[in-house]
Design a protein around this nucleic acid. Structure first.
Lengths: 103, 103
DNA sequence: TTAGAATATACCAATTTTGATATATTTTGT
DNA sequence: ACAAAATATATCAAAATTGGTATATTCTAA
């Protein structure tokens, strides 16, 4: 998975987003960061520290840190469910059609 | 009398669905089967056999069969992305609040 | 019914996440 | 600035998925 370079120009980014290959990578990365951010939001909304959430979920603080860092892109659904259960939510997977350039 | 039996089963199911513990398990399972079903639908919509999808995704027919059977509940997101890419879709994860009927 | 395709199951090795612990770094409050 | 809490990083073992191959079962059309 090619790493996204930090790009200063939004124009360039928008241009690249129209390239389907680039778009796929971008969407995948965005999804991961979104996921990590969502978990952080949920945890803070619950007023929990990583350690507390770990305790509730039956895992360790470093595992939560790893999850929130987005370090692992290959998380298992069971792990996500475990965390979700501790936060009172259930992860759902939906498939979104890849954006067609022509519409 | 099969009809009566079905009705009783539904009554029992509704009763059980009110039990939170049971509910969690049920939701998790439903989600998994939903996911497997979704993939089957997408594959057939594309007119692909398991072998063809496997080829496109860079995996094997048995792996697709496993995925569609819902055998493994602990799928990795990377695997789902791989399959999704071959089907022209991207898997997205959202967290749904648990338990409350009113959302 | 029968042959061939499609799908499901079985098995084991390989890869990767997760578990677990220790420790470092950053943040927060006083 | 200091101390304590919170978070991030590192390392290695354990557990689970995935890869790959072979084979069995089911489905489909002639």
């Amino acid at each position: 998975m090619p790493k996204l370079k930090t790009i200063n120009s939004e124009v360039l980014l928008n241009k690249q987003l129209k390239d389907t290959e680039f778009r796929k990578e971008y969407d995948a990365l965005a999804e991961e960061y979104e996921l990590a951010g969502e978990i952080i939001r949920l945890r803070k909304k619950s007023g929990l520290t990583q350690r507390q959430l770990a305790e509730l979920a039956g895992t360790s603080q470093p595992s939560i840190a790893r999850l929130e860092s987005g370090e692992y892109t290959n998380l298992t659904l069971s792990f996500l469910r475990k965390i979700g259960r501790a936060l009172g939510v259930i992860p759902e997977i939906h498939f979104r059609k890849l954006g067609n350039v022509h519409n």
